[in-house]
Design a protein around this nucleic acid. Structure first.
Lengths: 212, 212
DNA sequence: AACAGGAAATGAACATTGTTCAACGATTAT
DNA sequence: ATAATCGTTGAACAATGTTCATTTCCTGTT
């Protein structure tokens, strides 16, 4: 009847995600997890090397879910026959915005955590998941017939996505002020509109000889 | 001969900034500060209510300095007679990128800290400093003769700055990999180029009826 | 100069955390 | 039944933020 190792890990991760979502990284405590999971502190450390690994695992789940959300949003538009690039990118952005709104505590924790792992050299699982997101955007850009080779399209996708990301994260504060939500969305609309118009008019790679 | 309260606070903040820069928020410890400042732990708590207040004070200094850097960069271009909007925005962005590069540990800490203060209602000193940065960008946009009223120009400034911010923060990792630095700059150039072109062609506010 | 009053500094003590590990217990193979 | 193996436990340790009774230092007064 007892949960096996895998199931207990899942339970721990679910608890950990809830804790992160409520109080951010500072709220992820070994004793709280143990108590809520009905196991001892030591057992938590048997399942995961340390709290960082718990945090990392939660982040992976979140990134996975975000990717799935994005893919689902794209599939929806596909089914509806929407091919307009601007609309599709806005839909991706909307999915991202909603995701961040639903994870007010844990998403900031993903970013903070993400930043503090500068030790390892090569690309890791994090980068793999993020690249998957970039690929979706790049795919959308490919549909629009801008005059872009693969490299430039990839660069444009990363730029666009990072920009949306910046808008969402600088604008967002935990108390889901609807005023702020509107501001964020206006910025996203402006960015996407300007970006698409800019690409159409080929202003993207006109100059490249700035900064020392 | 002893330092007075004000001077000792400065010393503590300088130490705190160095600690943050080396190891991020986790490296800001009361005992380390006390030791390096040559005072006791209790005295740190005499100068500041808690470590959060120390951290906040450090962040204020950083934001102030960033603002000053941006203003200085604009003044330089003014002196050189550069009026091209794209160039001026790129100079602002370059100032920001350099600033983040110089503060590898403390700048991420500013952002993480910034995010976790969602309790107070009204705009605080943080917002005031950030608005100052937006105003600089808005001023630059005003010079370019886009067809924008004040509100839209302000929105465009916030959007552009948040986007640059997103590019820098998602792309940047502590080990100052020159490959990564190049990627960041390419993204910034693309963003700014596309943004200016997009504004020129009036694509910015063409549509506004998306997302439920 | 001696002293009283108050302000600032001190660091020992407390609470809370992450993490370890020797002891215990259950499960399984022989 | 016995032994061997593996997971579980929670007490114990170290590191940290924070408090506060005590001490120290300065300043003005007699």
């Amino acid at each position: 009847m007892a949960l096996d190792k895998e199931e207990m890990s899942e339970k721990v991760l679910a608890i950990a995600e809830a804790l992160l979502n409520e109080g951010g990284a500072a709220n992820l405590k070994a004793r709280t997890i143990a108590e809520q999971a009905g196991i001892s502190v030591g057992s938590v450390y048997n399942l995961f090397a340390d709290l960082d690994e718990v945090h990392r695992a939660v982040n992976m789940r979140l990134l996975d879910r975000l990717g799935a959300t994005g893919i689902a949003a794209m599939a929806d538009l596909e089914r509806q026959g929407v091919t307009d690039v601007r609309h599709r990118i806005l839909a991706m952005a909307a999915a991202y915005v909603r995701f961040v709104e639903v994870h007010p505590g844990s998403w900031p924790a993903v970013l903070a955590f993400n930043r503090r792992r500068a030790t390892r050299p090569g690309p890791d699982a994090y980068d793999t998941l993020l690249d998957a997101l970039f690929d979706i955007v790049a795919g959308v850009l490919k549909a629009g017939d801008f005059d872009l080779d693969d490299d430039r399209r990839a660069l444009a996708a990363r730029t666009l996505w990072s920009s949306v990301h910046g808008i969402v994260t600088s604008g967002y504060v935990a108390n889901s002020n609807s005023r702020q939500a509107e501001e964020i969305w206006h910025q996203v609309e402006l960015l996407v509109g300007v970006f698409v118009k800019g690409l159409e008019h080929g202003g993207a790679f006109a100059h490249a000889e700035t900064k020392a």
